[in-house]
Design a protein around this nucleic acid. Structure first.
Lengths: 216, 216
DNA sequence: ATAGCAATTGACCTATTGGTCAACTGCTAG
DNA sequence: CTAGCAGTTGACCAATAGGTCAATTGCTAT
């Protein structure tokens, strides 16, 4: 090949740089606005303004509102389980759960918009996400349930309903993102601090560990 | 007084009956649609159609979309803590918490739209609810935190962070309403059954009781 | 019976929505 | 240097939004 600039990865010229920068700018703005206003509440114009580009430019990169929304959702889902160390049957329950809970709580507190966007989608009946849940979340979920059942059978933890254990860990962590407004008012705070994240993690861990008969 | 039909309560004529019936019809339809579509997603027309009345009639009874939305929220809040037996420091922790958890879970599973409507409002930053939270929820919350602290000091339960304990009970129960779509897919079910409510209640109680050192 | 008012409703208003389009700009390849 | 195309953008469009209004209906008190 005489031309080594064919593929996009090998052609980082001004146009490509501008395109990637604009796409990222729009996606970031869209994530925030979709998370705070919901799908219907977010207007393409407000997203364009937040991104600092004309509305027509948003629709140039993303063919429709649906397309933009789906792209934002996919981006979030890709990061959603990133950094969540996977849990397998040979792991030590105390260690695995400690790590999982800590990361879940931190993710919810530090990047609440991701959880909120998914919450908005769920409240609408998950029109865009239900197929993803069926295809990816369900197998993952079944796997983790099996791991917990194995831990119970081998006497590593006390008997408990594995499905509801998982749901309650999800619930307790995501609540701090989705209901942040209420929690901050009740605690008379303006925002979460590092100490809050530590306390939330500790409290949730205490609940789970006590029920499973694990020691901290 | 010669006329005993002055007050509305003493004048149940056709007009009044029709008015109350229509208002109830509209409120019920609005609750469902606001809960499923959110404030922005719900249109006055769709609410009118769901209620079976012309749109202009909806705006005759409720002066604006804001007014209708606020009325729906107030109606829900009035029922929200109804049936939730209050908890005081002299109560037996095991009994009080058992009752509270059971009713919370049942409310979430049987009337998920109420929780979802509040969740939608929270995700938007609680523009209509924040004053209510400050005025009513916060004093209630402080009171319950004090009760739990008293239980801890008098040795009735093991030490725990009272605020996060309450949040996690709220989170775990409301999750079954707000994320119902996901849970049903993961469990391969069409709807919650009585047995599910029992199991959820039991699992949540198990978590809380273990942490507090209470026996079932 | 009838005056008067609550309630009903279709037509209509303006603002905003998601989306299109054609004219324009400027980078890049040859 | 320049042809051509990716990218940019203001103007525009039909559909729908929340809300108004005036004409009409029908119940009720006298």
């Amino acid at each position: 090949m005489t031309n080594f600039q064919q593929s996009s990865k090998l052609k980082p010229n001004k146009k490509e740089i501008a395109r990637l920068k604009n796409q990222a700018l729009i996606l970031k703005a869209a994530e925030t606005i979709f998370a705070n206003q919901g799908y219907e509440g977010a207007s393409m114009n407000s997203i364009a303004v937040a991104a600092g580009v004309p509305k027509a430019n948003v629709l140039y990169y993303f063919k429709s509102k649906d397309n933009l929304y789906e792209t934002v959702l996919e981006t979030i889902l890709a990061e959603w389980n990133l950094g969540l160390t996977d849990i397998s049957r040979d792991d030590d329950p105390a260690q695995a759960l400690t790590s999982y809970i800590a990361r879940k709580v931190r993710l919810a507190c530090e990047q609440p918009m991701k959880s909120r966007l998914i919450a908005n989608e769920m409240l609408r009946g998950a029109p865009f996400l239900s197929s993803h849940i069926r295809e990816f979340t369900r197998p993952w979920f079944r796997g983790k349930v099996a791991v917990i059942e194995h831990w119970i059978e081998s006497g590593k933890i006390q008997p408990i309903n594995p499905e509801h254990l998982i749901f309650m860990i999800w619930a307790s962590s995501q609540y701090y993102a989705d209901y942040q407004t209420e929690i901050l008012i009740l605690q008379n705070k303006l925002e979460y601090e590092e100490q809050d994240i530590i306390e939330i993690t500790q409290s949730l861990k205490q609940l789970v560990f006590a029920a499973l008969g694990l020691s901290a």
